[in-house]
Computed example of a mutant assay.
Amino acid sequence: MKRAFAVDAVIDRPARDVWRVLTDWERAPRWMNGVESMRAESGTRIGSTITFHARGKTRTSEIADLDEGRSITLVTVQGGVTARYVYRLEPLDGDARTRAHLTADLATTGFPWVLFAPLIRLAVRRTDAGQISALRAATEGAPA
């Protein structure tokens, strides 16, 4: 997999509050650019399917890894493109604030996906690199 982007931001809320917003799938469109709706098929656990509607299409992600309250990995496969998004939360200042990290990695296989890999990574970066800033705004604006 090749890195599409890595971003982080400090959120002025405890990690438990950030985690609650991060994994509130039905409200994720507040901070996920281009996502119109989202829902978890069977909760937030490894192997669960997250179904979302984005840019006119229904897509799915699987929760591939989970450290409750600290990190979650979502993997989406579409055609010859596999995207892995890793969200990590790091408590700061005795958990008064949280550093939120997001990395997005992509792998492409087959024709024409391999040819378009650099453009796909660029599109993912343009679309999704603002997620952590938007998560910060959604969390800091959320009631305690």
Score class of each variant (00 low, 15 high):
T58D: 15
M38V: 00
A138W: 04
R45V: 09
A107K: 13
A64Q: 05
I120G: 10
L89T: 04
D128Q: 08
L119Q: 08
R70T: 09
D67T: 08
T109S: 15
R30G: 05
L89V: 01
A134Q: 15
V75W: 08
K57G: 07
D105M: 02
V81I: 14
I120K: 09
G69H: 03
T23F: 13
D24L: 05
Q131D: 12
L89E: 02
M32Y: 06
N33G: 05
P118K: 03
S42P: 01
D67G: 01
E41F: 00
R88T: 09
V75C: 08
H101W: 10
V18G: 11
W113N: 03
F111T: 14
V18Y: 09
R97L: 00
G43F: 02
D12G: 11
A28K: 10
V10Q: 08
R125A: 12
W25A: 15
T23E: 15
W113A: 11
L92E: 10
T109W: 09
R88S: 11
M38N: 10
A107R: 13
T49M: 05
G130N: 08
M38I: 00
G47M: 05
T23Y: 12
T127I: 00
R136A: 15
A83Y: 00
T51S: 10
I46Y: 01
G94K: 05
T98H: 03
N33L: 07
G69I: 01
A123Y: 09
T73Y: 03
A134G: 12
K57T: 14
S37H: 02
L102E: 09
T44Q: 00
V77Y: 03
I72Q: 04
M32D: 11
H101A: 01
V114D: 03
R20P: 07
G43I: 03
V77T: 13
V75K: 11
V124K: 02
V124H: 08
M32W: 05
F52C: 04
R30C: 06
G94F: 03
T98A: 05
W19C: 06
D12N: 13
L102V: 00
D12V: 03
R99N: 06
M32S: 10
D95K: 04
P29H: 12
K57A: 15
R136K: 15
D128G: 02
A134V: 09
Y87F: 10
W19Q: 10
R136Q: 12
T60N: 11
T127L: 08
R125W: 08
R30A: 13
E62T: 15
R20Q: 15
P112F: 01
I72P: 04
A100P: 07
R45H: 11
R121G: 10
L22Y: 11
P112A: 02
P91L: 08
F52E: 06
G130E: 02
Q131W: 06
D17M: 11
V124F: 12
D24T: 09
Y87N: 09
L66P: 01
I63G: 08
D105N: 09
G94I: 00
V86E: 01
I132W: 03
I120T: 14
G80M: 13
